[in-house]
Nucleic acid binder design. Structure first.
Length: 434
RNA sequence: GUGACCGUAGCUCAAUCGGCAGAGCUCUGGAUUGUGGCUCCAGCGGUUGUGGGUUCAAGCCCCAUCGGUCACCCCA
């Protein structure tokens, strides 16, 4: 016996019973993005590794530890390119924007991607797997704060349209290349004398990514964080104006945001507006997002402002279940064809009827194999079909089928829940009684 | 990457002190020849994650390994 295969660690099958949730997410995303004028884009799952290392940033865990990277097959000269399964979606979309000259279009160019797989070699836990699927939006080529507000409005409407409640929208501005370096100096000045008493992680953060000092959850460091200088107090004038406009516009979208002066995003490329949505019930971050005005330049494009977010199907799925949102169920069959008897022509007639009904757009199932009539009726019932189409000796001789109402009370007399229908008007009968 | 807890039938779980591996659900068949939901009977289904060790004897104890869950780190 060969060893049984199992899905790889952190890679999950999305089983039929879970699909209604995924369909709800997809359908809602399509509707809301359409409403806000975003157009769908799909980019490749694999890109050159450097696309991600340059944008997401050397030094981030995503690039340093979590990418699925490998060398492509060498070309004739023996050179091979290092490729990676994408860990996030923004870099590919910006690459496509530049590659296809979308900067020539009316700006902003508003794009979304849906159910796109992303890969990170993380250790799995709640809401985290190695292959996850994202819904994300990107608006490129416009720095207007109305775009920022619109995107957060879209996101919030997306969640609430699915029936999610108790969501907290956190909002902050982390400045731009003018003001953030100065703020970081201030922050490090503040932390330098306190460094000895900081937790081990913070000792590292101080040098590697000082902004994340504010993210620390160790009790010993909370007082330091509370008294630390906040970046919103150090924004340059343009950033300050931009941020206050975002907040003003957000009120028009009726998004109940909360200012989060400690909110900093993990990826290097973020500027100005950053935001995330957290489930207060589940204590889970559903998505992250923010502005990235310097990103296109990193990829060799001309300066191009941009903003985007990404949210994961896996986390939304958990949240939907946690909040007991019931997705629309799959359609039940309209008809379930049952054949009584084992003669070849009876089975032929059954298959023929099934084919005819399906060609007429009627969702139809049938019993397979040599099951007894009783067994087939049990299956018909279990399929939740509206009616059973019975084909037996009498029906064959008479050129009709017997349609039995499966929603009727089981104990009714057969005559009360059955009706003879001529074969040539069966489709019309079923369509009429739908 | 660090740590904690957990791996028994497809699913949810039992198995006393270390003493013959069980139940419910699902599925299949049957309960008067061609009739569904409830009920009843029966069947299918296992190298107890895997590999070692201790023991007369291991699902149970020990070691390793793989996997799952959760937390940290990080992030969606």
């Amino acid at each position: 016996m060969p060893e049984q295969y199992k899905a790889l660690q952190g890679f999950k099958d999305i089983l039929p019973d879970e699909q209604p949730y995924w369909r709800l997410i997809e359908k809602t995303a399509v509707e809301v993005t359409e409403l806000y004028g975003y157009r769908r884009i799909e980019t490749p799952t694999v890109e050159e590794t450097s696309l991600f290392s340059r944008t997401t940033g050397e030094g981030t865990d995503i690039v340093d530890k979590e990418m699925y990277s490998f060398n492509d097959r060498p070309d004739k000269e023996g050179r091979s390119t290092n490729l990676s399964l994408r860990p996030e979606g923004t870099a590919g979309v910006v690459r496509a924007y530049l590659e296809h000259g979308m900067f020539q279009l009316a700006q902003p160019v508003k794009l979304y991607y849906l159910r796109e797989p992303m890969f990170r070699h993380d250790k799995p836990q709640a809401g985290r797997v190695r292959e996850h699927h994202q819904f994300g939006c990107e608006a490129l080529g416009e720095s207007d704060p109305a775009v920022d507000a619109e995107m957060i409005g879209l996101l919030f409407q997306f969640y609430t349209s699915m029936g999610l409640r108790n969501l907290q929208v956190s909002l902050n501005s982390i400045g731009d290349r003018n003001c953030r370096p100065q703020y970081l100096e201030r922050l490090k000045e503040y932390y330098l004398p306190l460094l000895d008493t900081c937790c081990d992680d913070c000792q590292v953060r101080f040098y590697k990514n000082p902004l994340r000092l504010l993210d620390c959850k160790e009790p010993q460091d909370q007082a330091k964080i509370a008294n630390a200088p906040k970046i919103v107090d150090y924004l340059c004038e343009p950033c300050r104006e931009h941020f206050s406009a975002v907040k003003r516009y957000l009120d028009f979208y009726e998004v109940p945001y909360q200012l989060a002066p400690l909110l900093v995003r993990g990826l290097d490329y973020y500027t100005r507006t950053v935001f995330e949505v957290i489930s207060t019930a589940n204590k889970q971050t559903l998505n992250g997002g923010g502005r990235y005005d310097g990103l296109a330049e990193i990829l060799g494009g001309k300066p191009t402002p941009g903003i985007g977010f990404a949210t994961s199907f896996e986390r939304i799925f958990l949240e939907l279940k946690h909040q007991k949102v019931v997705p629309p169920p799959e359609a039940r069959p309209r008809a379930y064809v049952v054949y009584f008897g084992k003669s070849a022509e009876m089975k032929d007639a059954a298959v023929q009827v099934v084919a005819e009904l399906r060609h007429a757009g009627i969702k139809t199932e049938m019993g397979y194999g040599d099951r007894s009539s009783k067994s087939q009726m049990k299956q018909a019932n279990a399929s939740a079909s509206a009616s059973a189409i019975l084909i037996g000796e009498d029906e064959m001789a008479g050129g009709y089928v017997t349609v039995q109402d499966l929603h009727a009370d089981k104990d009714l007399a057969l005559e009360a829940k059955q009706i003879r229908v001529q074969r040539n008007v069966l489709i019309a009968h079923l369509l009429k009684s739908k």
